[in-house]
């Protein structure tokens, strides 16, 4: 379990990092907290020729807020988000979800940008960002763009990010005072990746948009139209029948039945919480 040979770069600022990325493209990988990338490299499941360590780039760190949204730098660690008063007030769902991410040691290193870029279908942060209509900020040497979260996840661990782009941060709308949410996940042991999770976040920003996300089921986290349609109404049994069909469509292997059962249970309980 020793990684294949690679060249190591540690740029001190974002332009240098972007220049390196522009130069090496697909042969390069960005190293953030390393909590996912290092094991993958150690097992030689991924073999970047160039490793671009962004940990010294201060402009990627920290949490800022304006009137409508909170912006979290890509290199902000989970632990920092958990301790942030801004997050506690404006995006409490994120902090609640991160408590389910692994354990202290991993949360001390793991970053929100790394989690979004990795796009693990069982990960909490991508699912929360999807539930809160976040926007991902990506930059390349050519410039910056904002990607609505609904078009960010392409498939199993695949995203809209281009080879020469660095994820610099994520903008999450602040919640309206009246907003409520429900976050439920089921993991085998505390801190494990979720077997499945359900997030309900109706009217997060005050606008009447119902968002419901299922994660840990299929190739990416996904919005459930069955649950979104049902929120705020009296729930009929056919909601869960429709939800089970959505699960069946998302899961192709023999776990589909099991996933459908636990997602249904989590959804029922989440609905009950908001009722």
């Amino acid at each position: 379990m020793k990684p294949a040979r690679f060249n190591y770069h540690r740029p001190g600022n974002l332009p240098d990092a972007l220049a390196l990325l522009a130069e090496h493209g697909g042969a390069a990988r960005v190293l953030a907290g390393g909590q996912s990338l290092m094991p993958l490299m150690a097992m030689r499941l991924t073999r970047p020729e160039e490793l671009i360590d962004i940990n010294r780039i201060d402009e990627l760190k920290g949490i800022t807020a304006d009137d409508t949204a909170v912006t979290i730098g890509a290199l902000t660690r989970y632990t920092e988000i958990l301790r942030s008063e801004v997050i506690a007030a404006a995006v409490p769902l994120l902090a609640e979800a991160i408590r389910h991410v692994a354990h202290h040691a991993i949360r001390n290193r793991g970053t929100i940008g790394g989690s979004l870029a990795l796009a693990d279908p069982s990960a909490e942060t991508p699912a929360v960002c999807l539930a809160l209509a976040a926007r991902v900020i990506a930059r390349s040497a050519a410039g910056e763009r904002e990607i609505p979260i609904d078009s960010f996840f392409h498939g199993l661990m695949a995203t809209e990010l281009a080879e020469d782009e660095i994820l610099v941060g994520v903008r999450i709308p602040k919640r309206a005072a009246s907003a409520r949410h429900a976050f439920l996940e089921f993991a085998r042991r505390r801190g494990d990746f979720a077997q499945a999770g359900v997030i309900l976040a109706p009217g997060h920003t005050g606008v009447p948009e119902n968002r419901a996300v299922v994660f840990g089921v299929g190739a990416t986290a996904w919005r459930s139209s069955a649950l979104e349609g049902a929120m705020g109404r009296n729930i009929a049994d056919d909601v869960y029948a429709a939800l089970r069909l959505e699960v069946a469509a998302a899961v192709e292997d023999e776990t589909a039945d099991y996933k459908a059962r636990i997602v249904t249970t989590l959804a029922e309980r989440a609905m009950a919480r908001l009722a």
Binding site: M43, R189, R190
Partner: peptide, 14 residues
């Protein structure tokens, strides 16, 4: 089963 992510050993929390 290749790693301790797939092979679950009991933790103090359980």
């Amino acid at each position: 089963t290749g790693t301790l992510m797939d092979y679950l050993v009991p933790l103090a929390t359980e």
